[in-house]
């Protein structure tokens, strides 16, 4: 059955309504999070997912994460607004995501991974679905509890994160067509790749800044002597 699916050309006819496809693919995220293996296989192999839907989910995730800061009851999240940089806060999601996507794709493409860069991105975003889905109602719910019931909030909040993490791992396995063991191995390897990339980026930036500083001081020196 899987081979059949692969052999089939584009399952979506060109003439079909584009908006319909988008909404269908967005709805498909709900199927993915409840049936990870089946869902993420179909996501790429049956072309059920779209980048547009993935972008939407990512946007919602970031939006909910920001809304949470402001609208969760102060019992759970206290924000020192003076120190909050909203762009850094957004980057705190986007940057690890970008590292993960690039790191994972870079590694798996060398080891028989079938997923392309866009597909890795799409699947990862789809796997983030539980986050906005749980956190948003939880945000509203937080206003109806006291500190004694805080345990419940923490538990559900943790659940959304664990769920998303499990989904990401499952998604990678399906789009790269990896076995469970190989998948876990490459998950760990991808995390390691992220660290290596951070390391290289840091070296890169410090080199650049030193290089710039060199030329700046050179020009200054010349100006002094002129």
């Amino acid at each position: 059955m899987r081979m059949e699916a692969k052999a089939r050309p584009l399952s979506i006819p060109e003439g079909r309504d584009k908006r319909g496809t988008y909404i269908d693919s967005l709805k498909f995220s709900l199927y993915c999070i409840t049936h990870p293996l089946d869902g993420f296989w179909d996501l790429t192999h049956e072309r059920r997912g779209t980048i547009a839907a993935a972008n939407t989910i990512l946007f919602l995730t970031i939006l909910v994460r920001i809304l949470k800061l402001r609208y969760t009851s102060f019992l759970f999240i206290k924000v020192y607004w003076e120190d909050l940089n909203i762009f850094l806060y957004i980057a705190s999601i986007l940057f690890p995501l970008a590292l993960w996507v690039v790191g994972n794709w870079g590694l798996t493409t060398l080891f028989d991974g079938k997923g392309r860069l866009g597909q890795v991105y799409m699947a990862t975003c789809y796997a983030l679905t539980p986050y906005p889905l749980i956190q948003f109602p939880l945000m509203v719910f937080s206003h109806f509890v006291t500190i004694d019931e805080a345990e419940f909030y923490a538990m559900v909040s943790m659940l959304s994160l664990i769920w998303a993490a499990v989904l990401i791992v499952a998604a990678m396995g399906q789009i790269h067509e990896y076995s469970a063991g190989k998948n876990l191995l490459f998950t760990v390897a991808s995390l390691f790749a992220m660290l290596v990339m951070i390391f290289i980026l840091m070296i890169f930036f410090s080199m650049i800044s030193q290089g710039v500083a060199y030329f700046v001081s050179l020009v200054r020196e010349i100006l002094f002597r002129l």
């Binding site: 102060f74 019992l75 206290k78 109806f144 006291t146 500190i147 004694d148």
Partner: peptide, 18 residues
């Protein structure tokens, strides 16, 4: 209580209010 992040007292008041 919310203005000064007093969780305990806020919870006490909120429990009654609820």
């Amino acid at each position: 209580f919310e203005l000064k992040y007093d969780e305990e007292n806020y919870s006490k008041a909120f429990k009654q209010y609820r």
